[in-house]
Each structure stands twice: as structure tokens, then as C-alpha cells.
Write a protein that binds this DNA or RNA. Structure first.
Length: 271
DNA sequence: CTGGATGTTATTGT
DNA sequence: AACAATAACATCCA
């Protein structure tokens, strides 16, 4: 589930495997996944090597040895990367493949086709045009407070807005609000200074923990709300019948906020 | 077989 | 105009 921690993992993975190998060819199974037309993409990347990476929110930018040529990847709801050698090992759903000289390949895995790959000339200009704000991990408490003060909508939806804190996705928003003890439907502009500080603290703690655990939810601390979610398989995972708060033991509530499934503890997170 | 899923964007509504 | 809520997108899996 590629939110900020997963994308950070992919960034490190690509950086560890794919740099300084000229691209010989591209295989694009479905051009809908591209934000640059396939001919231009193939011609531009031919013979080019990746030289470095930068992640902002859920976006991964890959720099090349050709000026003004940057590859942007977005992993949608289910994307990932896999570096492999033999074409026999081509992973399932590797709908875009970068073939490097030397025989290694980078597969851009997209089971659900919500993923995107394309060229970008300038990262900051791209971010601006897409209204992507500061990466959640870079956000200061003052910036967070400033981003919330004029927002009348509920805090959970506000956190999912990539212009506020880039990289926060659905489970992370729930986790942040749980750790900061804020009700998901509280209007963003009604958060107290203390709550904004707690939120900023939670952003750091939750994201750094998730990155450190390589986004493997089963390895997250027992104090995390995420174990209530159905796809968690850790020993702390709550059964479907009994979703209990890891802090106070109360029954968790599941509701829809801003159209997204939302878990929270009605006792720890008062309105 | 139906429903729901991690994200983003276009569209509709206020 | 600005903001907010919703549907749609394409697949997979329980």
C-alpha cells in the first residue's frame, strides 16, 4: 500500500540497484500508465543512466545523466518495484520494464493500473503544478499550524490533502490522529495548539517507525492502531469481531470520513 | 458474486 | 470563486 513509507523504501531500493546502468530499452505494456507519450519516453531515455533519486510525498523522482530528464513514478494504490535479471523472472504485473545494459531489469509493478510513470523537467515546477506541498517529514509545527488554520473541513480529510502534508494516506491519517488523540471529524481549524503539536509529533514518530520497519505492518509496535485493519497479519492483529483500542481496550469504531474508511477509538479520540 | 481496497482526478454541489 | 464532497478509474482478493 504505497504511502510515504513504502515509496521511501522503493526509493532506497532503486538507488541501491539501478544507478549508472544505461537504459537499452523500455517495455510498456499499457500506455495508459504513462504521463509522457511512449515514443518520446523511449527516445529520451535511450542510453541514459539513472544517477540519483528524490522522494516528495508519494512521488519518486529519478534523476538521470541527461540534463532536464527526470523520471517521475507514482505508485497509485498497489504499485511497487522489482529489480531482476532473467526475463524468466519477470514479475507478474510488471507492466513497464526498464532494460539496462548488462542484462538487469527494473520492473514497475502495477496490478491495478492506477500507477503512473513519465518524464518531468523540473521537480519543483512539477510539484507546484500538481499542488503537492511539503513532504510530511519535512513539515515544521508552524507550517502545519498555518496549513490547518483556514481549513474548515474535518481534520482527517485535510491530512489526506497532498498540499497540506505530502505523503499521508488513509491508514497513516488514522494512525496520526489516534496517536495524537484527535477525533477524525474535528474541524481542522479547531485544533488547539497542543493538538497541532501532538499531530506534528505523531507525523514524525509514525512515519519514521514505518520507514524503519520497511513498511511491514506486522512489525509495527503494539501501540499502533494499524493492527485493527484487516490486512494486518501481526500477532497484535485484532480479530474482525473484536477491534479493541491498543491503548484503553475500548471497542474501536469504523466509519466513513470524506469517503474513506476510518478507524478510531471513541474513548481516546473525543470530538 | 459482490463489495471494498491503500490514490488521484474530474465532476458535481454548496 | 473557492471549497468540499463524490464518483470514476482498473484490478484483485476475501
Amino acid at each position: 500500500m504505497p504511502e510515504l513509507p513504502e515509496v521511501e523504501g522503493y526509493r532506497q531500493y532503486l538507488e541501491a540497484t539501478c544507478l549508472h546502468q544505461p537504459i537499452e530499452a523500455l517495455d510498456v505494456e499499457d500506455t495508459k500508465l504513462l504521463t509522457t507519450d511512449p515514443i518520446t519516453l523511449a527516445e529520451t531515455l535511450s542510453g541514459v543512466s539513472f544517477t540519483g533519486t528524490r522522494r516528495v510525498g508519494k512521488n519518486l523522482f529519478v534523476f538521470t545523466d541527461k540534463p532536464g530528464v527526470i523520471v517521475r513514478m507514482h505508485f497509485g494504490m498497489s504499485g511497487s518495484l522489482e529489480y531482476y535479471h532473467s526475463s524468466l523472472d519477470r514479475p507478474r504485473h510488471a507492466r513497464i520494464v526498464f532494460y539496462f545494459r548488462g542484462g538487469f531489469n527494473l520492473g514497475f509493478i502495477c496490478p491495478r493500473k492506477f500507477e503512473r510513470v513519465g518524464l518531468v523537467e523540473d521537480v519543483d515546477a512539477f510539484l507546484k503544478s500538481k499542488k503537492i506541498g511539503k513532504d510530511a517529514l519535512e513539515l515544521t509545527v508552524e507550517e502545519l499550524a498555518a496549513a490547518l488554520v483556514n481549513r474548515k473541513s474535518v481534520i482527517k480529510s485535510t491530512l489526506l490533502d497532498q498540499s497540506v502534508a505530502a505523503g499521508v494516506g488513509n491508514w497513516i491519517a488514522d494512525e496520526l490522529l489516534f496517536q495524537a488523540r484527535i477525533h477524525p471529524e474535528k474541524p481542522a481549524n479547531e485544533l488547539s495548539t497542543t493538538e497541532v503539536e501532538a499531530l506534528r509529533e505523531a507525523i514524525q514518530q509514525v512515519l519514521l517507525t514505518a520507514i524503519e520497519k520497511e513498511a511491514r505492518y506486522a512489525h509495527f509496535p503494539e501501540s499502533f492502531l494499524i493492527h485493527a485493519r484487516a490486512w494486518d497479519t501481526s500477532p497484535y492483529a485484532n480479530s474482525e469481531q473484536h477491534l479493541l483500542c491498543p491503548r484503553c481496550g475500548s471497542e474501536l469504531e469504523i466509519m466513513r470520513v470524506g469517503g474513506r474508511t476510518t478507524y478510531f477509538c471513541p474513548v481516546c479520540q473525543q470530538r
